[in-house]
Design a protein around this nucleic acid. Structure first.
Lengths: 139, 139
DNA sequence: TTTGGTGCAAAATATTTGCATCGTG
DNA sequence: CACGATGCAAATATTTTGCACCAAA
Protein backbone atom coordinates (compact mmCIF):
# COMPACT_ATOMS: atom_id res chain seq x y z
CA UNK A 1 0.00 0.00 0.00
CA UNK A 2 1.29 3.45 -0.81
CA UNK A 3 0.70 6.69 1.01
CA UNK A 4 -2.26 7.71 -1.10
CA UNK A 5 -4.17 4.61 -0.12
CA UNK A 6 -3.74 5.36 3.55
CA UNK A 7 -4.93 8.91 3.03
CA UNK A 8 -7.94 7.69 1.12
CA UNK A 9 -8.68 5.20 3.86
CA UNK A 10 -8.61 7.99 6.43
CA UNK A 11 -11.11 10.03 4.48
CA UNK A 12 -13.37 7.12 3.73
CA UNK A 13 -13.63 6.58 7.45
CA UNK A 14 -14.57 10.16 8.16
CA UNK A 15 -11.23 11.52 9.27
CA UNK A 16 -9.73 14.62 7.74
CA UNK A 17 -6.55 14.66 5.75
CA UNK A 18 -4.30 17.16 7.49
CA UNK A 19 -0.68 18.06 6.70
CA UNK A 20 0.38 16.49 10.00
CA UNK A 21 -1.28 13.19 9.21
CA UNK A 22 0.23 13.20 5.76
CA UNK A 23 3.72 13.71 7.15
CA UNK A 24 3.27 10.97 9.71
CA UNK A 25 1.93 8.45 7.23
CA UNK A 26 4.64 9.34 4.69
CA UNK A 27 7.28 8.60 7.26
CA UNK A 28 5.82 5.21 8.00
CA UNK A 29 5.55 4.43 4.29
CA UNK A 30 9.21 5.30 3.84
CA UNK A 31 10.08 3.02 6.73
CA UNK A 32 8.22 -0.17 6.09
CA UNK A 33 9.25 -3.00 8.36
CA UNK A 34 10.63 -0.61 10.95
CA UNK A 35 9.34 -0.02 14.44
CA UNK A 36 9.07 3.71 15.08
CA UNK A 37 8.87 5.31 18.52
CA UNK A 38 7.29 8.67 19.18
CA UNK A 39 10.78 9.83 20.01
CA UNK A 40 12.22 8.65 16.70
CA UNK A 41 9.42 10.46 14.97
CA UNK A 42 10.11 13.69 16.85
CA UNK A 43 13.81 13.53 16.01
CA UNK A 44 13.09 13.02 12.36
CA UNK A 45 10.72 15.97 12.35
CA UNK A 46 13.31 18.20 14.01
CA UNK A 47 16.03 17.27 11.54
CA UNK A 48 13.64 17.83 8.69
CA UNK A 49 12.66 21.18 10.17
CA UNK A 50 9.02 20.29 10.33
CA UNK A 51 7.07 20.61 13.50
CA UNK A 52 4.22 18.56 14.83
CA UNK A 53 3.37 18.85 18.48
CA UNK A 54 3.98 15.82 20.65
CA UNK A 55 0.35 15.44 21.61
CA UNK A 56 -0.73 15.52 17.98
CA UNK A 57 1.67 12.68 17.25
CA UNK A 58 0.31 10.64 20.13
CA UNK A 59 -3.26 11.35 19.15
CA UNK A 60 -2.74 10.42 15.54
CA UNK A 61 -0.65 7.34 16.07
CA UNK A 62 -3.30 6.07 18.46
CA UNK A 63 -5.93 6.85 15.88
CA UNK A 64 -4.01 5.05 13.16
CA UNK A 65 -3.73 1.98 15.34
CA UNK A 66 -7.42 2.15 16.20
CA UNK A 67 -8.51 2.20 12.58
CA UNK A 68 -5.97 -0.41 11.57
CA UNK A 69 -3.39 1.52 9.56
CA UNK A 70 -0.65 0.90 12.08
CA UNK A 71 0.07 -1.75 14.64
CA UNK A 72 1.92 -1.17 17.86
CA UNK A 73 4.03 -3.12 20.27
CA UNK A 74 6.10 -2.42 23.36
CA UNK A 75 9.85 -2.84 23.70
CA UNK A 76 11.66 -1.85 26.89
CA UNK A 77 8.62 -0.04 28.11
CA UNK A 78 8.35 2.10 25.01
CA UNK A 79 5.50 1.99 22.54
CA UNK A 80 6.61 1.35 18.99
CA UNK A 81 4.55 1.66 15.83
CA UNK A 82 4.83 0.20 12.38
CA UNK A 83 2.90 0.17 9.18
CA UNK A 84 0.47 -2.65 8.69
CA UNK A 85 1.39 -4.25 5.40
CA UNK A 86 -2.03 -5.58 4.63
CA UNK A 87 -5.45 -5.69 6.14
CA UNK A 88 -5.21 -9.03 7.88
CA UNK A 89 -2.92 -9.36 10.81
CA UNK A 90 0.58 -10.71 10.59
CA UNK A 91 3.10 -11.67 13.23
CA UNK A 92 6.71 -10.64 13.10
CA UNK A 93 10.30 -11.13 13.97
CA UNK A 94 11.73 -7.98 15.56
CA UNK A 95 15.40 -7.08 15.60
CA UNK A 96 15.87 -5.52 19.01
CA UNK A 97 18.97 -3.70 17.78
CA UNK A 98 17.80 -1.86 14.66
CA UNK A 99 14.06 -2.42 15.09
CA UNK A 100 13.65 -3.92 11.67
CA UNK A 101 10.81 -6.39 11.38
CA UNK A 102 10.24 -9.42 9.25
CA UNK A 103 6.84 -11.03 8.73
CA UNK A 104 6.38 -14.56 9.98
CA UNK A 105 3.56 -15.86 7.83
CA UNK A 106 2.30 -18.12 10.57
CA UNK A 107 -0.36 -17.63 13.18
CA UNK A 108 -0.54 -19.97 16.15
CA UNK A 109 -4.16 -19.23 16.98
CA UNK A 110 -5.59 -22.13 15.05
CA UNK A 111 -3.68 -24.51 17.25
CA UNK A 112 -4.59 -23.08 20.67
CA UNK A 113 -8.15 -22.01 19.97
CA UNK A 114 -9.71 -25.30 21.00
CA UNK A 115 -8.05 -25.18 24.40
CA UNK A 116 -9.75 -21.84 25.09
CA UNK A 117 -13.31 -22.75 24.24
CA UNK A 118 -14.63 -21.29 27.47
CA UNK A 119 -12.93 -17.93 26.95
CA UNK A 120 -14.00 -15.17 24.63
CA UNK A 121 -10.89 -14.42 22.60
CA UNK A 122 -10.44 -10.80 21.52
CA UNK A 123 -6.88 -10.61 20.22
CA UNK A 124 -3.44 -12.09 20.49
CA UNK A 125 0.22 -11.32 20.10
CA UNK A 126 3.03 -13.41 18.73
CA UNK A 127 6.41 -11.80 18.29
CA UNK A 128 9.91 -13.19 18.00
CA UNK A 129 12.84 -11.07 19.19
CA UNK A 130 16.50 -11.28 18.29
CA UNK A 131 19.12 -9.89 15.97
CA UNK A 132 18.65 -9.62 12.25
CA UNK A 133 21.47 -10.92 10.00
CA UNK A 134 23.27 -7.59 9.73
CA UNK A 135 23.03 -6.80 13.42
CA UNK A 136 24.31 -10.27 14.24
CA UNK A 137 27.51 -9.46 12.37
CA UNK A 138 28.20 -6.29 14.28
CA UNK A 139 27.89 -7.91 17.67
CA UNK B 1 6.56 -23.58 43.92
CA UNK B 2 5.90 -22.07 47.31
CA UNK B 3 7.31 -18.91 48.79
CA UNK B 4 10.19 -20.62 50.52
CA UNK B 5 11.51 -21.95 47.26
CA UNK B 6 11.63 -18.48 45.77
CA UNK B 7 13.45 -17.16 48.80
CA UNK B 8 15.94 -19.98 48.60
CA UNK B 9 16.44 -19.30 44.93
CA UNK B 10 17.20 -15.67 45.70
CA UNK B 11 19.84 -16.60 48.22
CA UNK B 12 21.38 -19.27 46.06
CA UNK B 13 21.90 -16.61 43.44
CA UNK B 14 23.63 -14.24 45.81
CA UNK B 15 20.74 -11.93 46.63
CA UNK B 16 19.75 -11.14 50.16
CA UNK B 17 16.46 -12.09 51.69
CA UNK B 18 14.95 -8.88 52.95
CA UNK B 19 11.53 -8.28 54.48
CA UNK B 20 10.55 -6.29 51.41
CA UNK B 21 11.40 -9.08 49.03
CA UNK B 22 9.57 -11.55 51.21
CA UNK B 23 6.43 -9.45 51.18
CA UNK B 24 6.57 -9.00 47.43
CA UNK B 25 7.11 -12.67 46.70
CA UNK B 26 4.40 -13.68 49.17
CA UNK B 27 1.94 -11.50 47.37
CA UNK B 28 2.76 -13.07 44.03
CA UNK B 29 2.47 -16.55 45.54
CA UNK B 30 -0.96 -15.70 46.88
CA UNK B 31 -1.97 -14.46 43.46
CA UNK B 32 -0.86 -17.13 41.08
CA UNK B 33 -2.19 -16.66 37.57
CA UNK B 34 -2.80 -12.97 38.13
CA UNK B 35 -1.07 -10.10 36.45
CA UNK B 36 0.01 -7.55 39.04
CA UNK B 37 0.89 -3.93 38.32
CA UNK B 38 3.19 -1.85 40.48
CA UNK B 39 0.12 0.17 41.30
CA UNK B 40 -1.88 -2.85 42.43
CA UNK B 41 1.04 -3.82 44.61
CA UNK B 42 1.23 -0.38 46.20
CA UNK B 43 -2.49 -0.39 46.93
CA UNK B 44 -2.29 -3.76 48.57
CA UNK B 45 0.62 -2.61 50.71
CA UNK B 46 -1.27 0.49 51.82
CA UNK B 47 -4.36 -1.46 52.78
CA UNK B 48 -2.24 -3.93 54.63
CA UNK B 49 -0.46 -1.07 56.38
CA UNK B 50 2.92 -2.19 55.19
CA UNK B 51 5.24 0.16 53.41
CA UNK B 52 7.74 -0.48 50.67
CA UNK B 53 9.01 2.44 48.68
CA UNK B 54 8.03 2.63 45.06
CA UNK B 55 11.58 2.46 43.80
CA UNK B 56 12.26 -0.64 45.85
CA UNK B 57 9.26 -2.30 44.25
CA UNK B 58 10.47 -1.37 40.79
CA UNK B 59 13.99 -2.50 41.53
CA UNK B 60 12.91 -5.82 42.94
CA UNK B 61 10.31 -6.69 40.36
CA UNK B 62 12.89 -5.99 37.67
CA UNK B 63 15.35 -8.18 39.54
CA UNK B 64 12.82 -10.98 39.87
CA UNK B 65 12.17 -10.86 36.16
CA UNK B 66 15.88 -10.81 35.40
CA UNK B 67 16.57 -13.93 37.46
CA UNK B 68 13.49 -15.69 36.20
CA UNK B 69 11.14 -15.70 39.19
CA UNK B 70 8.61 -13.48 37.51
CA UNK B 71 7.63 -12.73 33.96
CA UNK B 72 6.30 -9.44 32.73
CA UNK B 73 4.07 -8.17 29.98
CA UNK B 74 2.50 -4.89 28.95
CA UNK B 75 -1.21 -4.11 28.83
CA UNK B 76 -2.46 -0.62 27.94
CA UNK B 77 1.01 0.77 28.37
CA UNK B 78 1.38 -0.58 31.86
CA UNK B 79 3.89 -3.20 32.91
CA UNK B 80 2.33 -6.18 34.60
CA UNK B 81 4.08 -8.96 36.47
CA UNK B 82 3.17 -12.50 37.34
CA UNK B 83 4.71 -15.50 38.99
CA UNK B 84 6.45 -17.94 36.75
CA UNK B 85 4.90 -21.30 37.49
CA UNK B 86 7.89 -23.32 36.52
CA UNK B 87 11.36 -22.85 35.20
CA UNK B 88 10.65 -23.29 31.53
CA UNK B 89 8.64 -20.66 29.79
CA UNK B 90 4.94 -20.88 29.19
CA UNK B 91 2.58 -18.80 27.14
CA UNK B 92 -0.75 -17.62 28.41
CA UNK B 93 -4.27 -16.48 27.87
CA UNK B 94 -4.88 -13.16 29.63
CA UNK B 95 -8.27 -11.92 30.72
CA UNK B 96 -8.08 -8.20 30.04
CA UNK B 97 -10.85 -7.59 32.53
CA UNK B 98 -9.65 -9.29 35.72
CA UNK B 99 -6.09 -9.97 34.63
CA UNK B 100 -6.32 -13.64 35.38
CA UNK B 101 -4.08 -15.81 33.26
CA UNK B 102 -4.35 -19.34 32.00
CA UNK B 103 -1.40 -21.32 30.66
CA UNK B 104 -1.53 -22.37 27.03
CA UNK B 105 0.76 -25.40 26.95
CA UNK B 106 1.81 -24.69 23.41
CA UNK B 107 4.78 -22.84 22.01
CA UNK B 108 4.77 -21.79 18.37
CA UNK B 109 8.55 -21.42 18.13
CA UNK B 110 9.18 -24.86 16.76
CA UNK B 111 7.08 -24.05 13.75
CA UNK B 112 8.58 -20.67 12.82
CA UNK B 113 12.20 -21.34 13.73
CA UNK B 114 13.17 -22.64 10.32
CA UNK B 115 11.93 -19.51 8.60
CA UNK B 116 14.31 -17.43 10.72
CA UNK B 117 17.52 -19.31 10.12
CA UNK B 118 19.44 -16.17 9.29
CA UNK B 119 18.38 -14.38 12.48
CA UNK B 120 19.72 -14.93 15.95
CA UNK B 121 16.63 -15.53 18.05
CA UNK B 122 16.78 -14.28 21.63
CA UNK B 123 13.22 -14.54 22.91
CA UNK B 124 9.61 -14.46 21.90
CA UNK B 125 6.16 -13.63 23.13
CA UNK B 126 2.86 -15.35 22.52
CA UNK B 127 -0.17 -14.15 24.41
CA UNK B 128 -3.89 -14.47 23.83
CA UNK B 129 -6.20 -11.75 25.14
CA UNK B 130 -9.89 -11.88 25.88
CA UNK B 131 -12.43 -12.46 28.62
CA UNK B 132 -12.28 -15.42 30.96
CA UNK B 133 -15.51 -17.40 31.52
CA UNK B 134 -16.64 -15.42 34.55
CA UNK B 135 -15.89 -12.04 33.01
CA UNK B 136 -17.73 -13.08 29.85
CA UNK B 137 -20.87 -13.53 31.92
CA UNK B 138 -20.74 -10.08 33.44
CA UNK B 139 -20.40 -8.33 30.10
C1' DT C 1 -19.62 27.24 7.80
C1' DT C 2 -19.23 23.52 10.65
C1' DT C 3 -16.88 20.23 12.98
C1' DG C 4 -12.92 17.89 13.68
C1' DG C 5 -7.85 18.78 14.30
C1' DT C 6 -3.90 21.19 16.19
C1' DG C 7 -0.78 23.59 19.42
C1' DC C 8 0.22 25.00 23.82
C1' DA C 9 0.61 24.42 28.47
C1' DA C 10 -0.06 21.86 32.18
C1' DA C 11 -1.14 17.72 34.50
C1' DA C 12 -1.10 12.96 35.21
C1' DT C 13 1.27 8.76 35.12
C1' DA C 14 5.24 5.80 34.95
C1' DT C 15 9.99 4.82 35.82
C1' DT C 16 14.87 5.77 37.10
C1' DT C 17 18.79 7.53 39.74
C1' DG C 18 22.07 9.53 43.38
C1' DC C 19 23.08 9.27 47.84
C1' DA C 20 22.98 8.61 52.75
C1' DT C 21 21.57 5.13 55.80
C1' DC C 22 20.25 0.52 57.21
C1' DG C 23 20.55 -4.41 57.95
C1' DT C 24 21.44 -9.20 56.11
C1' DG C 25 24.75 -12.69 55.91
C1' DC D 1 31.52 -5.39 59.53
C1' DA D 2 31.19 -5.22 54.56
C1' DC D 3 28.47 -4.71 51.00
C1' DG D 4 24.16 -5.15 49.05
C1' DA D 5 19.42 -3.21 49.82
C1' DT D 6 16.31 0.43 51.10
C1' DG D 7 14.10 5.03 51.48
C1' DC D 8 13.82 9.52 50.17
C1' DA D 9 13.79 13.04 47.05
C1' DA D 10 14.35 14.55 42.79
C1' DA D 11 14.96 13.87 38.02
C1' DT D 12 13.51 11.84 33.81
C1' DA D 13 10.38 9.80 30.63
C1' DT D 14 5.97 8.92 28.82
C1' DT D 15 1.30 9.89 27.86
C1' DT D 16 -3.05 12.50 28.48
C1' DT D 17 -6.16 16.47 28.79
C1' DG D 18 -8.53 21.17 28.61
C1' DC D 19 -9.09 24.83 25.89
C1' DA D 20 -8.69 28.41 22.43
C1' DC D 21 -7.75 28.76 17.74
C1' DC D 22 -7.32 26.95 13.02
C1' DA D 23 -8.44 24.72 8.70
C1' DA D 24 -10.30 20.71 5.82
C1' DA D 25 -14.39 19.40 3.61
Amino acid sequence: MIKEKYITYLQENGYKCTPQRTVLLSYFCQHKNKLISVNTMMNYLKKDNRHISLDTIYRNLSLFVAIGLLKSTTLNGKRLFSLKNNLDHQHMFICTECRTTKPLNFCPMGIVQSSLNDCSIKSHKFEVYGLCPSCSWCK
